[in-house]
Nucleic acid binder design. Structure first.
Lengths: 102, 102
DNA sequence: ATACTTACTTACATAAAGTAACTAACTAGT
DNA sequence: ACTAGTTAGTTACTTTATGTAAGTAAGTAT
């Protein structure tokens, strides 16, 4: 093992290559959303979604806000660091449009 | 489950969110490479690398060439479809540089 | 007290990835 | 001929990640 890859790139890729993380971020780019809404829109299980949102929050990519309504509403949204991923998502979109069959 | 996400985007993200796939492609962007070279540069196990290269070949992203030298040399390189992922990789690089600590 | 909501968590089952030994095909050396 | 060395994998087995479905917590309404 003589790694020649930039460790920062490796870390960045590490996020994206975790299952569901990319789709969660993509989904949040269209605005703040609640747990059950993300869950149903991308088809991730609650167990993993909960895990991912915690990780993303710890990394400062996602923000969690509690609204003490009834029943309680909890919204997840992107921080500045998360929004900065938009150009990357657009590149994925472009490549997918150009090279993948529907 | 009422998915609202573009199925092509979902498929594209599906590749990238497979562990190692992104790093393999990134590594091949610097030129054709052989099995053991990819293995050691990114630290993936032979078992998974073999699996990924087969998938990528089936998807038309990677090309496999056999040179009957001694000992045999087998080179993996990107197809046009694979090279088209370069701008995407650059975006990951940019974001990682700007938002991740070394 | 019971039922209903959202946002989780827990226990258990299945799938994916890591590890290390092994094989195939070939050559080189003794 | 026999042993060893090379690359490119594969196989069997272990560990980790994810899926599934039931359960919990906090609140309101009936």
């Amino acid at each position: 093992m003589d790694k020649s890859i930039c460790p920062r790139f490796e870390k960045g890729m590490g996020f994206l290559s975790q299952r569901w993380t990319g789709l969660i971020i993509y989904q949040l780019l269209s605005g703040p959303q609640r747990f059950c809404s993300i869950e149903s829109s991308i088809g991730v299980s609650g167990r993993v979604l909960s895990e991912r949102l915690k990780d993303l929050e710890n990394e400062g990519i996602v923000k969690r806000e509690v609204f003490p309504e009834t029943p309680v509403r909890i919204e997840y949204s992107l921080t500045e660091k998360g929004i900065a991923l938009e150009p990357l998502m657009q590149e994925i979109e472009k490549w997918s449009q150009n090279w993948l069959k529907a």
